[in-house]
Structures are given as structure tokens and as C-alpha cells.
């Protein structure tokens, strides 16, 4: 790397005022580590790779708050929603799930409830079928839905075959039964639902009936304020845990952290 490149890399690594960025320097991991570090990093699943860092810290904070809420609400299902598309629900859901899974006594179940444009299986590099839509349409049984992700204690239920009938499927009795079963079978687990955007379709609102808490993802520089407000109003305010501001600037916050990476393996301490 030439000197200029280094300098440029340094400039680039500094968080932009519009939304701090996290540089991901190469870190040599023990050969025993069973994860494709590079692949996770490229997919921004930073929680799977780093112990610390601005983004990781924020995901951890989000996890803490969500877990506290669920404990208080005596539930275990959290849904991620956003007003428009591409605000970072899926990424936040994955990072939140990984953070939860990395907690000592927590297990995470990530369900891709975006039946129109399923995305999580790609993000976690997992087979997409059979998935939730298939199950809801009566194809296959429950046991085939759970896919392991390579990250300990994190299981994924992919969305399955993309379908436009998602609202009726999500509102179906079968969906209710499925979640009841999930709750019953995995009481110690945190169930994270990745929903489609709120405003374009009713899916998210229907899905919210099955959730105990809702995390609203707002992308800085994304949806207009009015849209976000409108989307928020669709939900029961008692269920809304809070907002995960994605791509946010928060200068005060940023200076408190800096770049202190823990180079230990992700799954350190996991038995």
C-alpha cells in the first residue's frame, strides 16, 4: 500500500458527519475460527466479527435495551420495522440477532418475515428454502424451517419462496400457530422478526400483532419525517420499544468510542 493509499484509507476510515462509518481493518483470527470473517465483514455483520467498535457498541446497546424491554413485557418476540425500504431493517435484525446470540445465556431465532423480497438467507449465507412462506402455504413441516447460520446460538427461519400473498399468509391461523409453537418450544430464545417496510404494504402491521415489541429502524437521510411519523402511528404505541437510528451522526457519541477492536474470536467464552 502506497503512502497515499494509506492516507486515503485513513481519511476514509474517519466517520462521515452524515453517518459515522466503521473501518474494518484486517485482523488475524485464529485458524480455529469457523467463520468466514471476510464474508461477514463484507456484509456488514460486524457483530459477528468484532468485539468492539462504534457500530458493534451501538448494536450491543440496542440488544440490551430490547432484552430489557422484552423481559419487562414478559415476551420474547421483537419485530423490526421501517417506514420505507432499504432503511436497514435486515442488517439491524441480523446484527441484533448476532449480538443476542453472543450473550451468555441467550439464543436467537431470526425469522425473515419479508415474504415478498426475502433477503436474510443471503445475508447469512444460508439456504433460502424451505422457508416461512412455504410452511404457511402448507408445504413441509415446522422442523425443516430452522436453519443453522454458522454463528452459534443463532438460527434462521428464511422467508422461503417469495410471494405476493404475504398479507393473507401472515394473517393466517397457521402463522399464529407457528409463532405460538415457536414461543412454546423456545421460551429462552429471543425471536427477531424482520418485516417488510410499513408504508407500501400491510404486512408489517399484521405481523406486529404477533410481536411483543417493535424496533423502528430509521435511516438517517432516508425516509421523510412525515412518512416515518405516519408509519409509527400504524402501531400500538405500547409495543414500540424505540428507534434504531441507522447511519446516524452523533458526534458526542462517536468521540466516546473511537477504534478499539477486540481481536479475540467471536465465540470466545461460548461453550
Amino acid at each position: 500500500m502506497s503512502k497515499i493509499e494509506e492516507a486515503l484509507a485513513k481519511i476514509q476510515s474517519k466517520p462521515r458527519p452524515g453517518g459515522g462509518s466503521e473501518s474494518l481493518p484486517r485482523v488475524d483470527l485464529p485458524a480455529a475460527m469457523n467463520v468466514d470473517r471476510e464474508a461477514f465483514v463484507e456484509r456488514r455483520i460486524v457483530t459477528a466479527v468484532f468485539e468492539s467498535g462504534p457500530a458493534v457498541e451501538e448494536y450491543k446497546k440496542l440488544r440490551t435495551r430490547v432484552l430489557a424491554w422484552l423481559r419487562a413485557a414478559e415476551g420474547n418476540v421483537v419485530m423490526l420495522a421501517s417506514a420505507g425500504g432499504k432503511e436497514g431493517k435486515s442488517l439491524t435484525a441480523v446484527n441484533l440477532a448476532v449480538s443476542v446470540a453472543r450473550e451468555l445465556h441467550q439464543t436467537a431465532l431470526l425469522i425473515d418475515a419479508d415474504l415478498r423480497r426475502p433477503h436474510l438467507h443471503q445475508l447469512l449465507d444460508v439456504k433460502g428454502q424451505p422457508g416461512l412462506s412455504d410452511f404457511l402455504m402448507g408445504k413441509g413441516d415446522l422442523s425443516g424451517l430452522f436453519h443453522s447460520t454458522g454463528i452459534p446460538k443463532l438460527t434462521l427461519v428464511p422467508a422461503g419462496t417469495p410471494t405476493a400473498r404475504s398479507p393473507e399468509l401472515l394473517a393466517s391461523q397457521r402463522m399464529g400457530d407457528f409463532l405460538k409453537e415457536v414461543r412454546r418450544r423456545y421460551q429462552d430464545r429471543i425471536v427477531i422478526l424482520d418485516a417488510p417496510p410499513v408504508l407500501p404494504a400491510t404486512d408489517a402491521v399484521i405481523l406486529a400483532n404477533h410481536a411483543d415489541g417493535i424496533v423502528f429502524v430509521v435511516r438517517a437521510g432516508g425516509s421523510a419525517r412525515e412518512d416515518v411519523q405516519q408509519a409509527v402511528r400504524q402501531f400500538d404505541p405500547r409495543k414500540v420499544i424505540g428507534v434504531a437510528l441507522n447511519g446516524a451522526i452523533d458526534t458526542g457519541h462517536y468521540s466516546a468510542y473511537g477504534y478499539h477492536y477486540v481481536t479475540s474470536p467471536v465465540m470466545a467464552g461460548v461453550g
Partner: peptide, 10 residues
């Protein structure tokens, strides 16, 4: 705001 996630660059 229960989390303010910064831009993550790959």
C-alpha cells in the same frame, strides 16, 4: 433512540 448505528463501510 435505543441505538444509533453509524455508517458501516466494508
Amino acid at each position: 433512540v435505543i441505538g444509533a448505528i453509524p455508517e458501516i463501510s466494508t
